[in-house]
Design a protein around this nucleic acid. Sequence first.
DNA 1: AGCGCAAACAGAAACGTTTCGGTTTTTGGG
DNA 2: CCCAAAAACCGAAACGTTTCTGTTTGCGCT
Lengths: 334, 334
Amino acid sequence: MAATMKDIAKRTGLGLATISSYFNGGNVREKNRKKIEEAIEELHYEVNEVARNLKTNATKTIGVVIPELNNTFCAEIITGIEDILRSHGYATMICDCRTDKQLEQEAVEFLSRKRVDGIINMPVDTEGGHLKDFQKTGKPIVLIDRKIQGVVCDSVLVDNEQAAADALKLLYEKGHRNIGIIGGPEEISTARERLKGYCRTMEELNLPIRESLIVHGDYTIQGGAKAMETLVENNPDMTAVFVTNYEMTMGAVIGLNELGIRIPERISLVGFDNLPFARACNPKLTIVSQPTEKIAEKTAGLMLERLENSGSAAETTTEKLETSIIYGKSIAQL
Amino acid sequence: MAATMKDIAKRTGLGLATISSYFNGGNVREKNRKKIEEAIEELHYEVNEVARNLKTNATKTIGVVIPELNNTFCAEIITGIEDILRSHGYATMICDCRTDKQLEQEAVEFLSRKRVDGIINMPVDTEGGHLKDFQKTGKPIVLIDRKIQGVVCDSVLVDNEQAAADALKLLYEKGHRNIGIIGGPEEISTARERLKGYCRTMEELNLPIRESLIVHGDYTIQGGAKAMETLVENNPDMTAVFVTNYEMTMGAVIGLNELGIRIPERISLVGFDNLPFARACNPKLTIVSQPTEKIAEKTAGLMLERLENSGSAAETTTEKLETSIIYGKSIAQL
DNA sequence: AGCGCAAACAGAAACGTTTCGGTTTTTGGG
DNA sequence: CCCAAAAACCGAAACGTTTCTGTTTGCGCT
């Protein structure tokens, strides 16, 4: 049905190799170039990338495996990555594994069968077993947000410890001493780092670390609400809370609203991620903001670099990016 | 490097056709089946889908073009679609066109070159010119959220007129008479429908349609905030506002907060989309909710149907789904 | 004009499948 | 046990590129 290079060759009287050379930036005599372009025009020819992929053994497609597309943090990063990769001719196959290790494993296998040229992964399984087979193919992997011990590859991270420290210090400066934290699941490295930042900073500030001020949420809205309720119940003297991801921040706000507790009069709050939400809250939330744009740039950049110089077994790099604080009105001056 | 079917054939002593038949559900004698499976195991063989794609002239990949991945409504739908398609062996290539017609056109061309088997599109360009060339290939197109006159294909829509009517009637029942609306851009059909629903219902309720109560936003947060400020300024007697998409709902809430106007004491609000946000607001927002899950199901379903019976030129179907109202506390009883 | 060299070209093979036409094996009924 | 029909199998050709190995062409010199 559709025209092929053979048709172009026949019509122009040129050889296959010449046509191919034309499409791959080779040198072609001016008059032949014209002939070819005419033929393309008339036959509505379009290179068949599938055939090309077979021959070159590359699909110009990158697989992306994330825990949850329906999550602003992920979505923002993906948008950025997709944009950059596409501008370099790479397509993006996204697999949402719903924060499920089993599904994550299947997603990687699926993409591997589709012969993607590389995989970008915000890992759920911190063991990294799901990547082992793919890595054997020698194709590049770039990890986002969480590093995995066993897997040697580039990663793009955020300085979570510092992020927590920044939040804590801000609350301290405003006079807060009894500061609670809604942390994440212990098996997630980012959650551990944020908690570590909290503990370290409390020590630095000579504040006692009280078990009752630490609650482990599950990174969901409901979990955030419940965690906030627990904190409030067990700590009558608590004046501020640091929440360590977006969903739980939302949950914490919901929880406080439902308990009828005013922000920041009764409880001050420092949230995490999602500027628009923080601005829409009343009062505006003070939050720790992650540089999603930069994460996307670095990630796509590292991937493209690996793809171009696939030969060189360059050292793996680990980027660590800084968070920033966006000031709202959710912290009371004591 | 990697094993091919030829290797399997050699190792088992069988012919190529038999191996192929094994992989495509054909009948193979028990002992041969065993031999093949052993060989696969030992050689770590995996079907090369690229070669298969070339031969079968199908990529088992669907292109998805949306205005903005970083938008809950889109993201929720995409997640659902991706999930269903993947479970049927189809990969999903997502292109975010940033609500730009030019980029949308390029995205479709990009996917077309990648030889996707079909395209799912939440269109930005309501003329549909960007789809013309792709449609000539005879491959299926499914439109979401917005229909296009010139393009004959399946579409999955939402009953926007009814959605607006529901919101209006609810406000009316609570005693509101001076009801403003923050509409969307006039060139977007969903926005027109929602506005039409507003006008029609106002008439039905014998309420005068005042120009000053109608503001056209641009579907962004900033636009929502500005629109709300305009409405408040020009309508001192206005007691309620209906906002017609999620971003502008967020913006409207921000705007009211910044003006120091209490919800619902001074102004009642009916928002649109995104349940979690609505619940996190104080007070909880009453919103019109779109059935994203169902939209995803219908869309993926229609696409799969077309792909299976690609021969039959069945009538195109247009699904129209119902919205629902989620009750919060953002409407005052007058 | 004739020479040599580089640039441009041509043809065939290869990438790893599926499929077509034809051959062998198996099966079961008499 | 034989034979026909059915089931299973085989090898070659094809899908539309890229690339390898040569061959031709064009160009600048003398």
